[in-house]
């Protein structure tokens, strides 16, 4: 590319001769670079190059007109991959959109007043809708992750990103359910996935740090209304926490909730719920 190992100074006539090949990408790298170098310095405008180049996208439109549908699963994979990779431009370049960073709350949420609609559209849209909701949350927690990182709390941030990825992966397993936890009487948002075999993974952010023996305890609340303890974790200055534990098996409608307990080992909540979400089919 930069090695001038052969004389590639082109004349204007050369460039005109090569214009079609150039705009179609049919020149070896050295020759294409020689054309670009000429165009950058030549006093003549060489408008013919742009004139031919402007036609090239029409070739793509012709190919596009065939109308082949991509496989249905591709969209979910793309959105999941995008969700797992915070959009750097949004996170790092405040000049691009200082005011358009999404507000952390509210998150589109499958609240309890929507079940009829969900039942009606479930067969086609439910798994994908879930992927999207998870993706939306991760976009947000991704930004939070960046902020944490910028504060120098690299390790915690990395752990958190890893736990988010683990939740996402668990949510994609067949039969898994997922819940988006939103603040309910406290602070703390996040996502949880429960697999068909009864493993829960949970990633939370924006939690108040725990002090002393304090722990956040996660609970599964089934249709009988009785909370089942899932496990506990502590939270440092970064406000993030995660859990990977045994759970009750996945079922739609299960509520995942967090309480801040004075110490580990509670078998029934002694403190009010601070964040919760309802699980729906994800896989």
């Amino acid at each position: 590319m930069t090695e001038p190992n052969r004389p590639t100074e082109l004349t204007c006539d050369d460039v005109r001769d090569l214009a079609g090949s150039f705009v179609l990408g049919a020149l070896p790298a050295a020759e294409a670079d020689a054309v670009r170098a000429h165009l950058a310095t030549c006093p003549e405008a060489h408008a013919e190059v742009a004139a031919l180049g402007s036609v090239v996208p029409v070739l793509d439109l012709d190919a596009a007109a065939v109308g082949l549908e991509p496989p249905a699963g591709l969209k979910g994979r793309i959105l999941a991959a995008a969700a797992a990779e915070p959009n750097v431009a949004a996170a790092v370049a405040p000049v691009a959109a200082p005011a358009t960073v999404p507000a952390p709350i509210p998150i589109p949420f499958p609240s309890a007043d929507l079940p009829p609609e969900r039942a009606a559209v479930k067969p086609r849209t439910s798994p994908l809708a879930w992927t999207l909701r998870i993706a939306a949350v991760i976009a947000i927690v991704g930004l939070v992750g960046w902020n944490v990182l910028l504060q120098g709390q690299l390790t915690e941030s990395q752990q958190y990103q890893a736990s988010v990825a683990a939740v996402l992966q668990a949510a994609q397993q067949p039969g898994a359910v997922a819940a988006i936890l939103t603040p309910d009487g406290g602070t703390g948002s996040g996502i949880a996935a429960i697999t068909a075999t009864g493993d829960i993974t949970l990633a939370m952010h924006d939690l108040a740090p725990t002090a002393g023996a304090q722990v956040y305890e996660a609970w599964a609340i089934g249709s009988d209304g009785a909370p089942v303890p899932l496990g506990s974790f502590q939270v440092g200055r970064g406000g993030t926490g995660s859990l990977d534990a045994e759970s009750v098996p996945a079922s739609a409608g299960l509520i995942v909730a967090l309480t801040l307990e004075p110490d580990a080992g509670a078998t029934t909540p002694t403190m009010p719920i601070i964040s919760k979400g309802v699980a729906t089919a994800a896989g």
């Binding site: 793509d60 439109l61 190919a63 596009a64 007109a65 065939v66 109308g67 082949l68 549908e69 991509p70 591709l74 969209k75 793309i78 959105l79 995008a82 969700a83 915070p86 959009n87 431009a89 949004a90 996170a91 691009a96 959109a97 358009t100 960073v101 999404p102 999207l132 993706a135 939306a136 976009a139 991704g142 930004l143």
Partner: peptide, 26 residues
């Protein structure tokens, strides 16, 4: 999309998935 909105990425995908896949397959 540039602001990190995944719904927008989905919209873009829905709009151009067929054209994109047709070109890629070609």
């Amino acid at each position: 999309v540039a602001a990190g909105d995944l719904d927008a990425l989905e919209e873009l995908y829905d709009r151009y998935k067929t054209m994109a896949y047709s070109i890629a397959y070609r």
